[in-house]
Design a protein around this nucleic acid. Structure first.
Length: 426
RNA sequence: GGAGAGAUGGCUGAGCUGGUCGAAGGCGCACGACUGGAAAUCGUGUAUACGGGGAACCGUAUCAAGGGUUCGAAUCCCUUUCUCUCCGCCA
């Protein structure tokens, strides 16, 4: 969400940005907002004037009553009553206009960073850097579910019976492996100065409305029947939600948080859940990182957050690459975003395991997250988030990359303290 | 889940028989005076958003949130959320 003052002062910049994102159908929104904003301010000014009149007359009524001047007081009351209609109409107009303006503001995309490559869709995303050698072993790498089954680590049949497609039982060493990865990820982030959080796994509709669009909500969120509660799709929802309508002081910045939560997603969007396996599922666990910082520091934090995830995967011997979202693939709220992709020896390509985003001040403006500053005035901080690791999807990369020819799995050094000090799974 | 009490500025706390209340007092904070310097003391100031104005400043809204009554609501009524106490139920 942009500052309306930016739209007023530099509509061409906003339009250029929309063009860069190939969202030509949104171009008219800019002029609509400018026009409605003008109307709104006219109505607002007039309504303020009437309210001011009413307030002063009402005060005088009090004085007249105190002096016992009944008739004059009644006369004054009539004056206020005469304004009532216009005031009511203006109030309705103000509400309608501001709602219409907000509706448009929410879909006008954030100004993308100058470094974002221009492109229509995900096919034009740009690989930035590779880390580690993408190895294709000379033996065949089985499908991840087959690896898990051979290690007695997954039961999809039972899960379909109890919960349906898109759910899983992990068991034995694979379940332990997932717990180990999450515990390791937690400590990895704590060692880098982040504060560990276990947030609420359900949030109210008011928070949901704040953190996502209606379309996203329909496609992602599970609602608890009979309660005003939704299962979170990611801990970012509760973690950013915790700051809604709050003032931070500059001493509070930067907020460096890492949160664990299960994530629940309906996945009713484009893909659905057709594939067998744990790539796209209704329930997974995730370690996330969140930063709230001063605007001038956000790009630096972006690089730091991205590096955290890459470093994490590298300590587990998984080759990764960073892939920058091009303008057309970048979500409207984001200034810049890079995916971390892990190497799949079986598919011989990289696949998404995490996403690092700089939201600029758009999320903070939308949610009313502000920072107090007496000298320069209060301002909106920048917000960023990134995935540390999200198993079981990450397990696919882990198992494929650490698979040995005999079917056993090598456990990298870094993970062993969390994995009952075992060096392999067989 | 039941019964009761409550939610006021950065904090504390009055107001809550509706009008001079954006809100006393205290604490904190900022600036100034006093001082060799400091403490103490004294003085002044100290919310947010939007709109208008070059600016000083002016207007409007905000006393948990939303709605209602009224010429006028922190104050009365309704709904929701949250907090505390007691009871119940539990990991």
């Amino acid at each position: 969400m942009l500052d309306i003052k930016l739209i007023r002062n530099d509509p061409d910049l906003v339009k250029e940005n929309i063009k860069k994102k190939f969202q030509f159908d949104k171009l008219p929104l800019v002029d609509e907002v400018i026009e409605m904003d003008k109307e709104y301010r006219e109505a607002h000014t007039r309504a303020d004037y009437l309210r001011s009149q009413r307030n002063s007359i009402s005060k005088s009524i009090g004085a007249l009553m105190a002096q016992g001047k009944r008739d004059e007081a009644d006369e004054a009351k009539k004056q206020v009553t005469a304004m009532a209609d216009e005031m009511a109409q203006l109030a309705v107009k103000e509400d309608e206009l501001s709602a219409e303006i907000r509706k448009r503001m929410l879909v006008i995309p954030n100004i993308i960073d100058a470094s974002v490559p221009i492109g229509k869709d995900d096919s034009e995303n740009v690989e930035i850097e590779r880390f580690g050698e993408p190895v294709v072993p000379d033996f065949e790498v089985p499908y991840h579910v087959d690896i898990m089954e051979s290690l007695h680590g997954i039961d999809l049949d039972s899960a379909r019976k109890t919960s349906g497609n898109g759910f899983y039982y992990l068991c034995g060493d694979i379940a332990l492996l997932q717990s180990a990865i999450l515990a390791y990820a937690r400590d990895f982030m704590v060692d880098r100065g982040f504060t560990y959080y276990i947030p609420p796994f359900m949030i109210r509709s008011g928070v949901v409305d704040g953190v996502m669009s209606f379309a996203e909500m329909e496609g992602m969120m599970y609602k608890i029947e009979g309660e005003d509660l939704y299962l979170i799709g990611t801990s970012e929802h509760s973690m950013i939600g915790k700051f809604i309508d709050t003032f931070l002081t500059e001493d509070d910045l930067p907020q460096k948080l890492t949160s664990y939560s299960p994530c629940f997603r309906k996945e009713v969007g484009a893909h659905g859940i057709e594939e067998r396996g744990v790539y796209r599922i209704h329930q997974f666990e995730k370690q996330e990182m969140i930063v709230v910082c001063k605007p001038e520091e956000s790009m630096q934090w972006f690089d730091t957050l991205l590096k955290n995830t890459i470093d994490f995967f590298r300590t587990l011997d998984i080759p990764v690459r960073s892939l920058e979202c091009c303008s057309g693939d970048l979500a409207d709220l984001k200034v810049k975003s890079m995916d971390v992709e892990a190497w799949s020896p079986r598919q011989q390509k990289y696949f998404e395991v995490g996403s690092c985003s700089n939201l600029g001040d758009a999320q903070a403006r939308r949610l009313g997250i502000r920072v107090k500053n007496k000298e320069t005035g209060n301002y909106f901080p920048h917000t960023l988030n990134n995935t540390v690791v999200a198993p079981p999807r990450m397990l696919i990369a882990f198992l494929e990359n650490n698979l040995r020819e005999d079917g056993s799995i090598a456990v990298p050094e870094a993970l062993r303290p969390y994995f009952r000090n075992k060096a392999e799974i067989r």
